[in-house]
């Protein structure tokens, strides 16, 4: 590889709220608060690219058919317009749509992707042009050659495969899944996040019964367990069907039992009160962990006490 690494890239960081996603960690807008975008998956980007190709080719064909049937122009003029359009649906289409639609082409809009500038500033026309010019080298030239591959001799075919392989590997060599054009332009492709605000469980009314916990009972868990519990409690029971609702309730009961065992809660929790128990445990635990955090004792997960030793098995 021609890339010499003088500074090590940061390890790909996972989204703490959803460990399957990769996060961009070095994106800092001018306000100085880092925003953690989700790195767009290569599958989504491939789909966006295919959608763009379909859209542009379909548009081109539609325009050509309209021109042919409208009989306004002589045949040669139609050929000229066609050949001009054929070029316009490549670099110019991608560049102009990303400039005009703030980092999205039609295909990207469909799959919820967006191009952002890696330095946290406005996406510049220069960056957009660069990344799409390189797209010519990465997608269109090999693509058209691949379509015409039956006419290639052995050596050219091998060269073509090497070309595609090298350019295809580049996105896997860096944490933020940048292709060559992205690296040159200084851009990332990210998922466009959807802001959905779920209710604050700390304010939901507790239906019945009151449970109280002692400080030593709250020392067992950390942020990860708390937020996993929150995800379970945020499930909207009204939207579940009967079977799912039963499963949800038995899950709540199982979790409640596990927690009572682990923290040494003196009384058994009846099945119909599992939800209320978990909600009040969630509140108390969250208040406790947040105040510990304020005092500088941030607890990541249940292994917080044994960080230095090997994490022991599950509870």
């Amino acid at each position: 590889m021609i890339w010499r690494r003088k500074t090590k890239d940061a390890k790909p960081q996972r989204n703490p709220l959803d460990p399957d996603r990769r996060l961009i960690t070095d994106f800092v807008p001018p306000e100085g608060v880092p925003i953690r975008f989700d790195v767009a998956g290569l599958g989504a980007r491939l789909i966006a690219q295919l959608a763009d190709i379909l859209i542009t080719v379909a548009g081109l064909i539609a325009i050509m058919i309209a021109l042919v049937f409208s009989d306004l122009l002589p045949g040669t003029a139609i050929i000229v317009i066609g050949s001009l359009l054929f070029f316009a649906i490549r670099v110019p289409y991608y560049s102009l749509s990303e400039i005009l639609m703030n980092g999205q082409t039609l295909g990207k809009r469909l799959s919820g992707l967006r191009v952002i500038s890696a330095d946290g500033r406005t996406l510049s026309a220069h960056a957009v042009t660069v990344r799409n010019l390189m797209k010519e080298l990465e997608v269109f030239v090999p693509g058209t050659m691949l379509l015409a591959s039956s006419q290639l001799d052995g050596v050219s075919a091998v060269l073509l495969v090497i070309w595609i392989l090298i350019l295809g590997i580049i996105p896997f060599t860096n944490a933020n899944r940048q292709r060559l054009g992205d690296i040159l332009a200084g851009t990332y492709v990210v998922m466009l996040p959807k802001p959905v605000l779920l209710p604050d469980l700390a304010e939901a009314p507790v239906s019945e019964g009151s449970f109280s916990f002692l400080p030593h009972q709250l020392d067992h868990y950390g942020r990860y367990e708390l937020q996993t519990l929150e995800a379970l409690l945020q499930v909207n029971a009204a939207s579940l069907n009967r079977a799912a609702l039963l499963r949800h309730q038995s899950n709540l009961h199982k979790v409640a039992q596990t927690i009572t065992n682990r923290i040494g809660y003196p009384t058994r929790v009846p099945e119909d009160q599992a939800g209320a128990f978990l909600l009040s445990f969630y509140r108390t635990q969250r208040a406790y962990l947040e105040s510990r955090k304020l005092f500088g004792d941030a607890r990541e997960d249940k292994f917080h006490g044994s960080r230095d030793s090997q994490p022991s098995g599950p509870s």
Partner: peptide
């Protein structure tokens, strides 16, 4: 200061 997952996800987005 917050461990509220719903809040953090919403604010990030």
């Amino acid at each position: 200061i917050s461990l509220d997952r719903a809040l953090l996800a919403y604010l990030e987005a």
